[in-house]
């Protein structure tokens, strides 16, 4: 985490963002903690020329693990900045408070803003190099002490056309507990994307090979990716039970939809069919065949 002399902040993170919105959520965390505008925070990722070590984004861990590392770095930045502020404000370090982007001396009206402290950290006019090493740049690594345990319930209501075997998702209701949520819109988007992926697995997607090992689903003319008109509008909500094993109380959210959706869809499909003799993907043809078995059973 590099605090520039003008008070802007550059965060180099090993968590890669390819649509998960780290640039927003991570910046929100830093801006909120340091009391600076969000546009003053740059998130740098995915460039091995700049980021020393990264392992990508996986396992719904960028919030719980990546942001915990950022919190640790922020702790160090704040501690160092307080030292600088104590020289600027000519007060004991223990008497310095930091709140809303301002360092102040307890019980007085003396204060200095974050950007001024950042400049003083580098120019070192108020302290000597023997008293304090100049600069405001810190790094942190974080290894989680435990997994996070998000929980939730997804309810799929499906309608099956017995004539054609087409399954339509009539309604989707989901409530998840992701612990503390930094950016509700991004979390909801993650849930939407996960559900779409899960519905794709349940109803549409399948890699098919012929007897010679030739892939038959080699293009989108044959591989059925979920599209907007395959999906309903999702009704998504959450409860908040903070996670005890990381400083922000965050639980993973990225995979929740993709984990819940296949089970919810297939439970609904097998409930409608009256038997479980169907595999994913439950394509129209597969459902039609399974429905014929249901009718035969009902006629017995």
């Amino acid at each position: 985490m590099r605090v520039n002399p003008v008070g802007t902040v550059e965060v180099l993170t090993g968590s890669h963002s390819h649509g998960q919105g780290h640039e927003t959520t991570f910046a929100q965390l830093v801006a909120g903690r340091l009391g600076i505008p969000i546009e003053n925070v740059a998130i740098v990722h995915g460039d091995t020329d700049k980021v020393q070590m990264g392992m990508g984004t996986y396992g719904s861990r960028s919030g719980a693990v990546g942001m915990s590392a950022i919190v640790k770095a922020l702790d160090k930045i704040e501690a160092k900045a307080k030292k600088v502020a104590s020289f600027v404000l000519e007060a004991a370090e223990a008497d310095i408070d930091f709140k809303d982007g301002k360092f102040s001396v307890k019980g007085t009206d003396k204060s200095v803003d974050f950007a001024s402290v950042a400049l003083q950290a580098y120019v070192a006019h108020k302290f000597t190099g023997e008293q304090l090493e100049p600069g405001l740049k810190e790094g942190a690594f974080y290894d989680p002490t435990n997994f996070t345990f998000p929980s939730g319930v997804h309810i799929a209501e499906v309608e099956i056309d017995p004539d054609t075997g087409v399954t339509t998702i009539a309604k989707w209701t989901a409530v998840d507990d992701f612990g503390v949520i930094i950016n509700p819109m991004i979390v909801e988007g993650q849930v939407h994307g996960g559900i779409a992926q899960g519905i794709g697995q349940a109803l549409l997607e399948g890699a098919v090979y012929d007897a010679n090992g030739q892939l038959l689903t080699a293009s989108y003319m044959d591989y059925t990716m979920p599209r907007a008109d395959d999906l309903p509008s999702f009704r998504v909500d959450h409860t908040t039970t903070p996670c005890p094993s990381n400083p922000l109380g965050i639980k993973g959210c990225g995979e929740a939809g993709a984990i819940a959706a296949p089970a919810a869809v297939m439970n609904a499909v097998t409930d409608a069919l009256g038997h479980e003799n169907i595999a994913m993907p439950a394509t129209p043809q597969a459902v039609w065949l399974a429905a014929r078995a249901s009718f035969a059973k009902a006629a017995e």
Binding site: T164, T217, M221, D222, Y223, T224, M225, T283, P284
Partner: peptide, 11 residues
């Protein structure tokens, strides 16, 4: 006159 079609789910 009317036309009814069942689309290939992928293409």
């Amino acid at each position: 006159f009317a036309y009814a079609k069942f689309r290939n789910p992928a293409s």
